[in-house]
Amino acid sequence: MKSALTGAAVCLGLLLASITGSAQASTTSAPQPTAQARQHGIDKAGEAYMGWTQNTTTTSSTAAAPTDFGTAAVVEGIDVSSHQGNVDWAAQWNAGKRFAYVKATEGTSYKNPYFAQQYNGSYNVGMIRGAYHFALPNSSSGATQANYFATNGGGWSGDGKTLPGALDIEYNPYGATCYGLSQSAMVSWIRDFLNTYKSRTGRDAVIYTNYNWWSTCTGNSTAFNATNPLWVARYASTVGTLPGGWPFYTFWQWTSTPLDQNHFNGDMSRLTALANG
């Protein structure tokens, strides 16, 4: 009997050790925000958002009003993530916003818990809306993340009110600036994502990035400027030098005050045309 009890105790100990080890592995597997990311409101995995390094809402600085619009006509819009929670879409409409991009996913393990309220709410108030994916190129392939995005809010329909999905590819809030990838490997990852997204939806995804990151991590690659619309981030009164040889921008994120604000480079008819494909 003693031997049997001893054996049972050993088995129980091994089981508990296994459970504890699994829990520890689960806890440590999630990427942890850097000190810089925490200063910009990213406290845990999944909370990354467009333009997080340029965010000014946690400081006293504000961007100057834009003067360089690219075309005579622009359409005003916003982008949101879980940080905005439930958005008052009627107020945004009354403030003149006519389009919105909503964060849907990050990597392959995060879905924005406010996505339905934000994505459907913007649509219901009359806006043209789209979804975006925050890329983590060091965690899985571009194809894997594109499929995750397309399945969890990043799809497209030709209803005239849905913009093509956007790939948010920028500074890593969890570690190395270029996610540990070489410039050629990063370009290959992006191509893998874009090709897969197009095969899933029939649309070329918008690329959201900024000049400095794109130059550093892709070698200022010109591989996508003929196929994928550019959404450039620059918090200044002018859009500045565009990355990747793009001849013009489609969207320009110019400030985060009081939340991320964007210009579409054209009038409402052109925005509708982009939605229609």
Rank of each mutant, 00 (worst) to 15 (best):
G77L: 04
G77P: 02
I78R: 07
S81Y: 01
S82E: 13
S82L: 08
V87G: 05
A90I: 11
Q92F: 09
W93L: 14
G96P: 10
F99K: 13
K111H: 09
K111E: 14
P113L: 06
P113C: 06
Q117W: 01
Q118W: 00
Q118Y: 09
G121Q: 08
S122K: 10
Y123F: 14
Y123V: 07
N124Q: 15
V125K: 03
V125I: 13
M127K: 09
G130F: 02
A131F: 02
Y132V: 13
F134D: 03
F134V: 11
L136M: 14
L136T: 15
L136H: 09
S139T: 15
S139E: 15
S139K: 11
A143Q: 14
T144M: 07
A146T: 04
N147F: 00
F149Q: 11
A150R: 08
N152G: 08
G155S: 08
G158Q: 15
P164R: 10
D168S: 08
D168H: 00
Y171L: 01
G175P: 10
A176I: 15
S182K: 12
A185W: 09
A185K: 14
S188M: 00
W189H: 02
W189E: 00
N195Q: 15
Y197R: 03
S199L: 09
R203S: 01
D204Y: 15
D204S: 14
D204R: 11
A205L: 06
Y208I: 13
N210H: 12
N210M: 07
N212M: 05
N212R: 13
W213V: 02
C217I: 11
T218N: 10
